[in-house]
Design a protein around this nucleic acid. Structure first.
Lengths: 358, 358
DNA sequence: AGGCGCTTGGAAAACGTTTTCCAACTTATG
DNA sequence: CATAAGTTGGAAAACGTTTTCCAAGCGCCT
């Protein structure tokens, strides 16, 4: 069933059907109604492939993420889809799983399907691959990384705002030995977080050197805590490069019978939905997934729909901020009696700032 | 840059380029090499839209899920994508978010983009919408629901196998008051789980009536535990319709200072990746997401690639089975001294059967 | 040496749209 | 009433492929 079939049945030309469907105002209302009736009767939907062919636009946006199984991303995907539906776009989702081969295939798939733009939400990507997309003048939007050239939008994450809050929160709770569990070393975004931690610690005269490397997954958090425990001067608080790491820490702490937050304060990063439901609920730095997706989508849309503004705003910023839950507490005052050994942890942080995202 | 450009530069006809690219064996190797060189030089990728137009196949599979933010689904999406890449397909992913409007738009999007098949992994879908797809002879694969007609494959989940194991495990631990936190009432899959619980309980002469309704989300689990606590004869064990519910229970138990598993045994359902990392690690019934996705994809592929076998196997089965972790324990022997009040919970379940699914 | 069959490459049609150009019709105006 | 201006609809070209049908060139056999 094609547009000609409709034309025949409605006794008009295909041009008229096309105009009707695309709501060109010059078509006679009477006729339009006749066409619409046939369209509805037959349940006709225009063939997007054919349309894309002549229009030169597919109305598909590519979305490249690191791994969809990381709870950080589904929220992003959902928001992205919501916006896509709203604007009559489709999404071509690919997950690189940190595999260079998959990254390459991701880019190829984007090009083959002729997407109108690509959001690269994988915190780290081989430069050479991007070239292929740039060569084809496909609008791109990056987070953190990404060169400063026209046609490429950048979302800068303001890590320092949230991380500084977190560090100062811990310091205010009398913690001085604050450790950091970093993300994979090659990830730019992980590096940025680590730098923000370093800066924040130095600012208030604390040593930023208690760092162990994780992998942004729960397993990494578990191992990291093990390592931290081997140290002679154990930290009393630990800040994690992402929430998954923090969840791993929580889990290992349970295994080791370390009480959170009484024995150890834990702070995460990302504020994934799950963070509200960990045991105990996780104090973490919020980086709104909803906000990130929204910025990314709109940047793409803007680039495509009014290419005139191509050299307007190309850089966006997303701020981060601390959300208090219950995984931090006053440091045990070692060798002093100022702080009671045992305190009622469930009532301590009652003025919790609940996440307002999504 | 199109196929004609390549033809011109390689000094052959477009037909030859097409044949080369599609590896038709009759083309002269010498010539083929010349063509390939030009293709690589220019970084040419065939336009899939044009290809789809003439071939009548898009090499896109639709994947409809309930909500991508539910941790059950990302694993499925990942596996689906892995298989798609392997077989040179793309995925059109839509998330219904339990909204009838979105379901409708999902189906429309599938039709508009002319997908070659659709996997409906949303445990409940309006029948009328499916008609649109069936009318167009789009191969479909369902889970649980779905009529028994040619062109529609069905994946039957064997709920009873795993749930019976879970119930008997609890009974063996001397639990008699075992509650069930059900899923949303309108969901067929939730109903099937509840029925399996009922059957399993009756089989061993226990009352299956301690049921409260949840929503398959953490919030539902939290509320359900609250309700369970109001009862005069509190259950000593609770089985949940899915893992998210169980995680909610764990969370609320922490809030109420109810010790899991000492005060209450908890069993989940699904075995999402996270279940291994809850506190305590969740004993749950495994329904392999990987397996499910694999069956779904292959059913679709089979339907499309060799439509001859159209009336061969149309029904697939996925079995479920219990995986023991640490959220269940012996029931407190009320008013007797057989079981010690306090026992070392971390060593009780050492013969844990770790999940083997990824 | 001539004809025959096979290999190889090319011209053109087809896929389902949109859109440009043009013609026919309607209405207002002198 | 005739003509100009504006409205409305249609024929055909274009988008980038695949594939069918043909023709040319080649080696082989008699």
């Amino acid at each position: 069933m094609d547009i000609r079939e409709i034309a025949r049945r409605a006794k008009v030309s295909t041009a008229t059907v096309s105009r009707t469907i695309n709501r060109v105002p010059t078509v006679d209302p009477q006729l339009a109604k006749r066409v619409w009736r046939v369209v509805d009767e037959l349940g006709y939907y225009p063939n997007t492939q054919a349309r894309a062919l002549v229009l030169g636009r597919t109305r598909i946006f590519g979305l490249i993420v690191s791994e969809i199984t990381n709870p950080f991303f589904p929220e992003i995907v959902q928001t992205f889809e919501d916006l896509a539906v709203e604007n009559k776009y489709e999404i071509l989702l690919t997950s690189t799983v940190h595999d260079p081969k998959r990254m390459e295939s991701s880019v190829r798939r984007m090009i083959e399907r002729r997407v109108d733009g690509v959001a690269i939400l994988t915190f780290g990507m081989e430069e050479s691959l991007i070239e292929h997309l740039r060569d084809r003048k496909v609008p791109l939007v990056f987070v953190d990384v990404g060169p400063d050239v026209p046609g490429i939008a950048n979302i800068r994450i303001n890590y320092i705002s949230g991380i500084r809050q977190a560090v100062q929160h811990l310091a205010a709770m009398r913690h001085t030995r604050i450790a950091f569990i970093a993300g994979p070393e090659h990830l730019k975004s992980a590096g940025a977080r680590r730098d923000a931690f370093r800066t924040s610690m130095l600012e208030i005269g604390l040593s930023p050197d208690l760092v162990v490397i994780g992998d942004h997954r729960m397993e990494g958090g578990m191992n990291a805590l093990l390592e931290l425990n081997k140290m002679s001067a154990r930290p009393t608080a630990v800040m994690c490069s992402n929430d998954m790491t923090a969840i791993g820490v929580l889990r290992e702490a349970y295994e080791q019978n370390i009480k959170i937050p009484d024995d150890l304060s834990v702070v995460g990063f990302d504020d994934i939905h799950l963070a509200e439901f960990t045991i105990p609920p996780l104090t973490t730095v919020q980086m709104s997934q909803h906000g990130l997706a929204e910025i990314a989508f709109n940047a793409l849309l803007n680039e495509v729909e009014n290419s005139t503004s191509s050299r307007e705003q190309h850089s966006y910023e997303l701020v981060t901020s601390l959300v208090l839950r219950k995984s931090t507490a006053l440091a045990r005052a070692v060798g002093s009696a100022i702080v009671p050994e045992k305190s009622n942890r469930t009532t301590r942080h009652r003025k919790v700032a609940e996440s307002s995202a999504r």
